[in-house]
Simulated assay, not measured.
Amino acid sequence: MDRNFLQRVLSGFIYAVILIACVHPIGAETLNNILPLTIKQHYLFYGLMSFFFLAGAWECMRIMKFGGGYEKWIVFPLAIFIFYLFSKRFFYHDFFFNFRLTEILALSLILIAVVTLFRSTNELYYDSGKLIFTVIYTALPFGFALGLPRYSAYENTFSLEVFFLFILIWSSDTFAYLTGKFFGKHKMAPKVSPKKTWEGFAGGVILTIILAFFIEKYNPGLRGNWMVVGFLVSVFAPFGDLVESQLKRSFGVKDSGNIIPGHGGILDRLDSFIICAPVVYLYFILEKLI
């Protein structure tokens, strides 16, 4: 058997185990049974999102190849400060009780950054543009991800929104791939991602919504309507992949990194999540207001 295949399977398995342990209560339960410690699930989740954010920001900087100006030195201080503001809201449960107009502004910045990537790439060849894009593309999505689950530090409970979000993203990718493999004829974006087809996209949407129906049926305590979440994920997960593909293509890079052997970098694995997390968070905001 191909050694690279075994490496890919092993590293993918380890990645999945770590991720699930940090976004599902089974993680803290298992560690508390093994170690003489009391570990809260929300600390594992926060640690995972913090690592994803920092590693993603580092990879984004490498992809965009900053010059010798001052901008590359303030990327991390600025991004960490913004993520810190989200962190305060996370630990004080402020996500669930207060809606702020600054959230809409931050979500709008993500949209503007994506449009700039596809329509005005020249702006990103300046270090100032690279600075702004890196901060928006990494600090904001993982910051909003902190607002997806509900938890109680006193009752040691942690809800499963992020866990099922990852399940839907992985399933959407698989459904779209299989549908496209057997029925795909019309390319979605041949210059950016030549393997994606409209038939695969349609199959991913339909099958992901069906899966989301059963997720909600057997997990009625989740926030929002998960058929809506399934639709949003099936639409925006492929778009997230296209965004990262366009970023790498613009700067002549094949992989964002090699932190996960055989799978690439953090941005390669989380390109869909980076777009889906703020989109689903926006849906939760609107659903609460309605």
Rank of each mutant, 00 (worst) to 15 (best):
L165Y: 11
G147Q: 12
E161W: 13
K195T: 15
F182R: 08
K196L: 11
V162S: 14
A176C: 10
F201R: 00
F182Q: 01
E161H: 15
F175D: 03
V229F: 01
G221H: 07
Y154P: 00
S193E: 05
T157Q: 09
W170P: 01
L211H: 02
Y151E: 06
S159C: 00
V162G: 05
F175L: 06
K185Y: 04
W226Y: 13
P149A: 14
L222W: 06
E216A: 15
I210Q: 00
P149Y: 09
F182K: 12
M227R: 02
L168P: 09
I169W: 02
K187I: 12
G230L: 06
A189E: 05
L178K: 03
M188P: 00
P194A: 10
F214E: 05
S172N: 10
L178I: 11
G203S: 00
T157P: 04
L207H: 00
P194L: 11
L168H: 07
G200K: 02
N219A: 01
S171N: 08
T179W: 12
L168E: 10
F164W: 15
S193R: 07
L222C: 06
I167M: 14
G230Q: 15
R150A: 10
K217T: 03
K195L: 12
A202R: 01
S152Y: 14
G224H: 07
P220Q: 08
E216T: 03
N219F: 13
A176M: 09
K195Y: 09
A189G: 00
A212K: 08
M188L: 13
I215T: 05
G224Q: 09
F166W: 14
A189Q: 01
P149M: 12
L232S: 02
G221L: 12
L207G: 04
G184Q: 05
S171D: 06
K181C: 03
G204E: 03
L148C: 09
Y218I: 13
G203K: 00
L168D: 11
T174D: 05
H186Y: 14
M188Q: 09
G221T: 07
Y154S: 14
V233R: 06
S172W: 02
V235G: 01
I209N: 08
A176S: 15
T174W: 04
V233E: 06
S152V: 10
E155I: 00
R150C: 05
I215C: 01
Y154L: 12
Y151F: 15
L148M: 10
F201W: 05
P190F: 08
A153F: 08
I167V: 15
K217E: 11
G147R: 11
V229A: 00
P149D: 14
I215F: 03
V162Y: 14
M188W: 07
V229K: 00
N156T: 07
V229T: 07
L222N: 06
S171P: 00
R150P: 02
E161Q: 13
S172E: 02
F182P: 01
F231K: 03
G224N: 03
K195I: 10
V205D: 02
G147T: 01
Y154V: 14
A176F: 05
I209A: 09
G200T: 03
K187D: 08
T179P: 01
P190H: 08
T157D: 04
N225C: 02
